[in-house]
Design a protein around this nucleic acid. Structure first.
Lengths: 228, 228, 228, 228
DNA sequence: CATGAATGAGTATTCATTCAT
DNA sequence: TATGAATGAATACTCATTCAT
């Protein structure tokens, strides 16, 4: 186990990792294209140029293969979004960059959307990997909540509970992403993002309407939201 | 020989309609619970208390059965939303009521969300019934666009292209609905809706930040949103 | 039961017969086209413009319907052949006419060949209607044997057992008919018949070869045929 | 790494061939007995003592299994006939041997007749394998036509177009074979063959009748056969 | 008598998973 | 460790036949 090489055929530990990745990538594409049930492991094996037996050595069941490929995709999503956010310094700009990065990731990796759909379609028992992943990240890293809190403290965001902001933004992005994918929307991503951000950041109401009391007046119970 | 009555057993048209509905309702629940492939037509027949043959008399293929059950669900969604909107007169209130109605429908009929997911998972070739339905309704009835235009004309909504508003609100609701369903969120629907509306109608930014120029300053190109 | 008409709606006894015939004719075509299993009684009912129930009133099972339609076809075959034979007086000419009539019948009614094939394919237990029919006719009417005997007595045919002649001619026609149908042969029927008759009536051998002893010399055992 | 030997379980090519043959033979018998539709693949698998899955590994569809089993039978027919013909030297004797071999093959392998019938009954779209096979063999090998031409040149056969002779003999055998099978004829094959050959080689007519002009006088048009 | 809605038996095919080599 | 042959569970769909009206 040391760095000292043993005689004979070297054990290519790296091969294992490369092969695992190759299998997962091919699996993601195959699942996305064919659906879970119709994705034939034989086809997968052919694509990766290993035998079916080998695929099952790496992933003992088709389901585990599927879960692993979704996990890998979500890791890449997180990395992409984080990278986009880290490229800028200003908190608000960071938020915008992250949101755009999120939409762009799914735009460029449409098979990941399919995986999310398939997971729910096939494994209703299991909690969605997407939300599971999201939750886990939140537990270990409340960076976005801090960022939102900072924006509020700086007087740039209205005083809305940060958790709530996070939820609404998350839902908006999630829905936009799905919507884009499933409806076949083809608008340029950047332009679409700007329109969306304009509305959610500035709100739909005019200043006049807001000063008149905003939507609170129309909501069934007046225990509505009290902000700012 | 006088009347148009043909010989033989008369047809009970009402029974046909009732049975069709019973099959579709049972099918929706079964599909939602088991997924498309694992929903056994024999089980369905047993539930509805008819023979398998009868099920296939009504719907010649499992797929057609599925599509019909989704169609029926979407019709019910539309009716629910329309009814909610028509209960109030003020345009803004109408909009809020419709949005709440939408979320409530899926909250009360969670199997419909499953159907939407299943449809995409199984029939990637077919355009999503949801968006198809949406599109068809838009073609024949641009009521919501008119309502939005009215709100803008009245100075209550900022001057944003109505189509864009509709898209963003649609995506927000779509995402929230999915999100609620898949993440198992359990918040009271009314409370959640109010929080969501607060953000999207009033915006996230403070008045101070808005008067400073809003988010336009942070967006990659300044062709951003021009409001009010 | 007399010719005296009773009051009220007349019972159209003829209708029964006409309908029976219509069903059988349509059935023959349908069976021939689709095969036994794939011939749908519903389709048959639609064609004849009666209900499925009515079809089953006339023929209690699909199989009986099939047998009846084959029986009807074979009756028509017999009539056709008999008519052709009766049109001429000379015995040899009669024979030739009958054989030509046989081939022409199947040429003009190809669906009958299909029925013969289907019967064997589906009902291996039952004796072939064709041979059954042939046998029955032979029992009641040995006209062809008499005719052959006459030809021999007249010194026109070689002295071969008439039963044997009948068998060989029967097999030759049966095979030619099947062969024509299944291989899609398109030669004009008359020309083909003449070629065939030439060989079977005159034989393949030259006079020289015959006078040398014919084929008897080449046959395994010399108990061969002793003719003339 | 030196030899071409791949890792993993080696392939037993011989087993594959033996198993293929076993499946085809069992299939031929099963089809012949039950008919195409009623031949259950599970039963076949049980007979061959493999799993149903294995049967489908060898033949992806029931139909392909059927076609392969018919093909195998026709290959065996050809071999049998060729072997019978090659056992003798004299052309005429060769012809007689081949014809007898043909009849004997079907006598000893009655299931092959059933396969031919089933093929037509089930797959009306496909050209009959029998005639297809026959055609293919004729294309590559006109041995029989040459043999007939030789017999004519030698003054043993009348001068009839060889193609025509081949057709008539083919039809006669085909019909005799079917006839034997379907009518349940039980005569000793050799005896039957001799009777048949006697007629077709020597003809039905007496010398006297032939010298009087043969059948040409009785045929509708006198463009009949001109022989010898 | 006629109708046609309802029944339910019968079967090819796919593909994850195992395991002998 | 890699291979790929073998396994067998699981399921939509058709259509003859029945029978209530």
């Amino acid at each position: 186990m040391s760095t000292a090489r043993k005689p004979g055929r070297p054990i290519d530990l790296d091969l294992v990792e490369r092969r695992r990745a190759a299998i997962l990538d091919a699996a993601a594409k195959l699942f996305a294209e064919k659906g879970f049930a119709h994705a034939d492991t034989q086809v997968l094996a052919d694509v990766v140029q290993v035998s079916k037996g080998t695929v099952f050595r790496y992933f003992p069941t088709k389901r585990e293969l599927f879960e692993a490929s979704i996990e890998r995709s979500l890791d890449r999503l997180r990395q992409t979004v984080d990278a986009a956010a880290e490229a800028v310094a200003d908190p608000l700009e960071k938020l915008l960059a992250a949101m755009t990065g999120y939409l762009r990731f799914f735009d460029e990796n449409p098979e990941v959307v399919e995986l999310l759909i398939l997971e729910r379609a096939e494994f209703k028992d299991r909690k969605s990997s997407y939300f599971d992943h999201k939750e886990k990240c939140s537990e270990t890293d409340d960076g976005w909540l801090l960022l939102l809190a900072g924006l509020i403290a700086d007087g740039r965001f209205r005083n809305i509970p940060t958790e709530r902001i996070k939820n609404v933004l998350g839902d908006l992005l999630y829905g936009t992403m799905f919507s884009n994918h499933m409806s076949g929307r083809t608008r340029a991503l950047e332009s679409q993002a700007r329109d969306l951000f304009d509305i959610v950041f500035h709100g739909l109401l005019t200043d006049a309407e807001r000063s008149r009391g905003g939507i609170a007046r129309y909501l069934p119970q007046d225990a509505a939201g009290k902000s700012e």
